[in-house]
């Protein structure tokens, strides 16, 4: 099924450039003032409750309100659109790029995304497993849980409104869980990684190989 994926090539790519380049975009319109410069080392969000903000990257002023924008990841500012300094920018404009060093775990996750079917968060909210799924996970472990399209697998909670979330995708088992109960997940971020049972050996092989070969 995934025989066409050249894992040697993928691993070599990560070996030669073990970074992810993250574009930082403006969340809304406003006057832009940079507060970081090229090659600055920036910190990501930290703290037990993810409550300590990362390094201040820039500020957007709109309607006399100044909105500070902080880095969400650790890394180095690799480029800045200096021409935008002091200018009015549109929402969604890329204003800088952060070079984020990938850890072994992140590399495994990224490679696995080639073979896992990723189920993303439909809205920025907190998520937890549907009660029957949770009790099955508690009893048998997540990789024993088979799911198919339209199964209610999660509950999304936002402002005390609970929404059942149905799975859409190919039938399979829950291989990776990317959220923790009570943690706010941004829209589009991965919640689950699903794979077919016959893909499991390949996944184990990838994990074993990265673990063995990566320093």
């Amino acid at each position: 099924m995934h025989d066409d994926i050249d894992f040697d090539q993928i691993l070599n790519q990560y070996r030669s450039d073990p970074f992810e380049y993250i574009d930082v975009r403006t969340s809304h319109t406003g006057l832009l003032q940079f507060r970081a410069k090229e090659e600055d080392v920036v910190e990501g969000v930290t703290g037990e409750w993810q409550h300590i903000k990362g390094t201040l990257l820039f500020e957007l002023e709109r309607e006399r309100n100044i909105k500070p924008v902080h880095s969400s990841v650790i890394g180095v500012v690799s480029s800045i659109e200096r021409s935008l300094e002091g200018k009015f920018v549109e929402a969604g404009e890329t204003v800088m790029t952060i070079r984020h060093p990938l850890k072994k775990r992140e590399i495994i996750e990224r490679i696995l995304k080639n073979v896992l079917s990723i189920f993303p968060a439909p809205e920025r909210a907190k998520y937890f497993f549907a009660m029957d799924i949770q009790s099955r996970i508690d009893k048998h472990g997540q990789r024993s849980i088979s799911i198919k399209p339209n199964d209610e697998i999660l509950t999304m909670s936002l402002m005390k409104r609970d929404t059942p979330v149905s799975y859409q995708g190919a039938p399979g088992i829950i291989h990776s869980v990317y959220f923790e109960p009570g943690q706010t997940i941004d829209q589009g971020q991965p919640l689950l990684g699903i794979c077919s049972e016959d893909t499991l050996p390949l996944i184990q092989k990838i994990i074993a190989r990265v673990k063995a070969e990566w320093d």
Binding site: W49, R124, A125, K126, L158, M159
Partner: peptide, 14 residues
Amino acid sequence: RLANGQMLRENSGE
């Protein structure tokens, strides 16, 4: 605001 002065923003919970 936590005791250490850090601010938190929550969209769900009790």
